[in-house]
Design a protein around this nucleic acid. Sequence first.
RNA 1: GGGUGUAUAGCUCAAUUGGCAGAGCACCGGACUCUUAAUCCGUUGGUUGAAGGUUCGAUUCCUUCUACACCUACCA
Length: 502
Amino acid sequence: MENTEYIESQNAIIRNRIDKMNAFKDEGVEVYATNYQPDARAAQLKAEYGTATQETFDANPVHVKVAGRIMAIRVFGKGSFAAIKDATGTIQLFVGLNTVGEEAYTRYKKFDIGDIVAAEGTLMMSKTNELTVRTTTIKLLTKSLRPLPEKFHGLTDTEQRYRQRYLDLIVNDDVRDTFYKRSMITQKIRAYMTNQGFYEVETPILQAKAGGATARPFVTHHNALDMDMYLRIAPELYLKRLIVGGFERVFELNRSFRNEGLDRRHNPEFTMMEFYMAYGTYTILMEYVETMVQTIAMDVMGTTSLRWNGNDIEVGGKWRRLRVREAVASALGVTEDKLSDRAFLEEIVSNLPEPIRGDDLAKKSDGHLLMEIFDQKVEETLIQPTFVYEYPSSVSPLARRNDADPNYVDRFEVFVGGFELGNAFNELNDPLDQRQRFLDQIKKKLEGDDEAHPMDDDYVCALEFGMPPTAGCGIGIDRLVMLLTDSDSIRDVILFPTMRPE
RNA sequence: GGGUGUAUAGCUCAAUUGGCAGAGCACCGGACUCUUAAUCCGUUGGUUGAAGGUUCGAUUCCUUCUACACCUACCA
């Protein structure tokens, strides 16, 4: 569609703004200006002068240059107030016929809400005691052609907020705040990890085999090589290759992709932080995770006492440690030795809200049944941060068995707010054991399990050279941000969540 | 995948039993130099998500489709 046709297809408000813009152009007014540097920001001015008095400004005039988007205009004939918003917040302008002159004032009255302007002037206190820039020059920097959402109700349509996130960010301060916090959180994670001697690395997203987790991958195609490739489902196997290579401590703040359903807790692409520590153990990693979350909470929120989804959550202090069997026995109100009774487990599982019955039930291992009860009875009750440990080995194929009791693995998962935040274990570094587990997966694949892990000969080869005893951990960054920003949907902490095209 | 709900002006929402599609804000014009959802006066703005059906007549009832939200399932 040609531009003229496009413009005609727009509604009256937009056409009117385009007409205004063209009139400005005809007068020689720049509508997309460049090279303007403000010397002040709204929040900084309010922090510094918010409680000053007019007398101090009279005695010592403060000249400022500000820039931002016009969010409101209130005209009183020959004088006018406008609110402009920059990255830090909102500051009020007073634009008067007497302060900017007749020509500029006439032009200013044609500015629209949404336009980006530069204003210079001196600070003053309004009669209602609001810090205000008494504007002496005001200049259009960028013309806005589309009206912003209505000022009182704002933009509430969830779909439009996600699709047009820029609009969401313009009008919803709390959304902007959430993503500022997300940025701080990832920054603090980097700082924390590098301070602990971890190297930040980047491993392939395009992989010939998608390994390191059990999930369906996205498939894509490389033209020159004429081969299908996968988007990674986890960086795990590459990070452990680096441990073999001698890195000893590595982490990757990684985007991973899983070709699965979308819901409040799952987006097809999501951010994890995986880290691996040679000579570490899962108990050492508990301390790391605990301290890291506490440090970030203090740095970003200024407190370890959080409010999330209607719950008060205290992430300070030493987190609760809970064995799986202990948690399940307590939830069922029985002693732990009952959990070794297969018939008892089957009875409980077949009466769960989402029961397993018949052949499926018979096929599951004791460990699977135990975890099924845990998932349905315990997980959502773990509101305060809790390390759950002593997992059955049958549900943990990548974890190293416990030396004292090979039925269990040296693994923990950490829960907060009723959802899983992270998963960690001592890594399996026995190459032949690993190879056998891959072989078992291939059998599952042949039986139709499209999530079964593929054989990775090169990874086995790496382990054959010898991987030092290592513990590894994955933290769900999106979920951590949800926790710290009191968001109950993953889409509220991902700037551009996956959407079907319009 | 299953269930429930929603879709009307730029935005937020109404519309009685099926009977002329409306309000507030925004926009446009006018008044106003201390407002902050400014106020006051006057206008403008619609393919009612798409297609089909019933009917003299459909925003309303029926069918199909599309998108989104919530719940649920799958899935770490």
